[in-house]
Every structure is written in C-alpha cells, then in structure tokens.
Amino acid sequence: MSSVASLVNLTKFYDLGSVVVKALRGVSLEIPEGDFIAIMGSSGSGKSTLLNLLGALDRPTEGQYILNGRDTSQMSDNELSIVRNSDIGFIFQSFNLITQYTVLENIEVPLLYRTGYPPISARDRNRCIDVANQVGLGDRLDHRPFQLSGGQQQRVAIARALINDPAIIMADEPTGNLDSKTEEEIIQILTDLNNEGRTIIMVTHENSVARRTKRQVFMKDGLIAGEGIFPG
C-alpha cells in the first residue's frame, strides 16, 4: 500500500515572546491509503497542533508533511487553500455548518472554491444529492442546520467533506457533541467510508470510538508516545 500522507520529523514551535512553546517536537508518521487512524492524547499533548498541520491549516516550523506526493511545509497560503479544498475533507466536533445555508448549499460550499472556479453543473448538483443520500439525508436537502438534530448536522458535514473526493478525511472529535446512539451511527458511516477505501484520520479521546479504528496513535508532550490498540 502506498502512502497518502507521510510526516517526517515535524516540529511546531509557537514563539510567545518570553517563552517558546514546543507543541510538536519531531513527529514522524506514515499514513497508507485506506488507513483509519485515531489520534489520541490528553489536552496539551500536541494533538490539535498535529491536526492543524495534517489539515493543511498551518505550516510546520521544521520537517516535512508530504500529502498526495507534495510537500506542504513550504506552501503559500493560497496553495494551502487549494490543498484543503481538493485533498482534505473536514469534519468538526461542532459541525461548523453555515447557518444561513440549506443542507444542499452547505454540501456545495467546497465546490465554490475549486481550482479555476468551474460553475456548479447539473452533474455536481446530482453528486451532492448522491452524497446526501449516502449519509442518509436525502429527504432533508432544503432544511437549515437549526432544523436538524446534531447527528443529522454531522451527516451534512460528512457529505460536505466527501463532495470534492479528498485524499484524506480529517475528523476532529466528530462524536464529541453527540449522544452515544448517534455516535454509533456516525462511527458506522465513517467505518463504511473506510471500507470503501477512504483514508480517515480521527482525533478523539474516547476509547469506545478509538477502538473502531484500524490503529491508534498516542500523543504526549509533542511526541508520539505509542501506537497500537489501546489496552483499555
């Protein structure tokens, strides 16, 4: 299996003037295609920083992050935007839908920013509907986020993450705001997507969720402390 993403000795320092916070102190990781990986760790362990780097929202201080064969560590803000649009699908803990948009419009947002700004075609529209059906929202296309339950909102976010067919899906505590029954539904959708061959990186601190992934990475003090099934 080829690597979708590989991290080579990534460091991230925040210069706060009087102190330098070393959020990541050299992280190396290979993520093969079709992987389903859980990043775990207590707060302050550097997992959020790692997530921001993996999501191409930020650049590392040192080291390389090679995504889809391209090094993002030296990219400009514009190039990072393009990478986020075409290679990464985001799922957030708090859903992060645009409140004034309908379900369909929310799913379309990544299409607005495609390279070259092609118009949204009928085919694109059909694809949005297909993706919405896939996550079980086919009958809610005209609803607004406030008319939906948390689980439904997260399904919208998943559909949105899939619309540009990204290389990696980044899920940041996707079940953090959900009850256990909905949590199970969302995890099931993610598992199904992984079974279809999608690469998923998920940040979580719930063992029940982490247990459903293929492998787990534990962060501590800005370093990877260990890998493997959490012993429970």
């Binding site: 999501g55 929202l57 986020r84 985001f90 645009i98 409140t99 947002v109 990544p110 495609r114």
Partner: peptide, 16 residues
Amino acid sequence: TREIGIRRALGARRRD
C-alpha cells in the same frame, strides 16, 4: 468570523 473560518478550511483563498 466562524463562517470565514469554515470557508477558509473548506478551501476559500484570501481573495475569495
């Protein structure tokens, strides 16, 4: 601000 953050995360460039 949050909407701007969402759009940026989903690929909007500064000029967008």
